[in-house]
Write a protein that binds this DNA or RNA. Sequence first.
DNA 1: GTACTTAGTACGCTTTAGCATACTAATGAA
DNA 2: TTCATTAGTATGCTAAAGCGTACTAAGTAC
Lengths: 121, 121
Amino acid sequence: MAEDINNSYLTNGVIATLQVIGGKWKPIILYILLTEGTKRFGELRRMIPAITQGMLTSQLRELERDGMVVRRVYQEIPPKVEYFISEHGQTLSTVLNDMCGWGFYHIEQKKNKEKQDQPSH
Amino acid sequence: MAEDINNSYLTNGVIATLQVIGGKWKPIILYILLTEGTKRFGELRRMIPAITQGMLTSQLRELERDGMVVRRVYQEIPPKVEYFISEHGQTLSTVLNDMCGWGFYHIEQKKNKEKQDQPSH
DNA sequence: GTACTTAGTACGCTTTAGCATACTAATGAA
DNA sequence: TTCATTAGTATGCTAAAGCGTACTAAGTAC
């Protein structure tokens, strides 16, 4: 019988992925940049009204650190900063789409189960 | 231009998935049950030495609540409780494998980049 | 010189996740 | 009668994630 599975292949791969796309706002940010291309900081902020400026900054910095997005600064006043998905970041789209597909399948299953549990009324 | 992306299709699907498999120990637990089949509580505990009893209980309860694992209680003393992946839980294996694949690809990319940044020494 | 703009930073707070340790119930074996 | 066994629960702690509000720099337009 296998012992101490902590360092197993699958486990570490999944955790590495979760570290990159985990966090409340990262899937949203990645989705926007993947589907709509380059965006300025302020544009992202307006597209995700519920996020605070500090959170947006920190999430973008982490995505940049992990090589998912590129930050391009224009030396202008007022400042202009653009964010876009890196080449490596593009490879995430398959995973995100799969997760999206499964997530919706799961939501449907839950709905069906609730109907079963409470058939009429 | 799209506004308020919070309720977008992809975003919600990904978040639903993260809610099910997110959390420090859930990928490990799911991996064990997916690859090795039914396990007793104590077996899981021994296979994941770093987890505390309370955490293992709470994670298993959440996975059960989300319909990923089934908890089978034997009316014996000392207690015997078995956990195994539900039919619906089986559908997770594709997603987990994809995430695993991408995670390892990502780790490799990082290694290569570090080598580039510091070629000799 | 005052106001407006953008992309932030700084600070302190609340909430959630995770951890450590001790305790429990019910039975059979010694 | 005491001990060992299993699958938990209870309690309180620390650490991390996330939030709210206020502030900043540096230039342009008025």
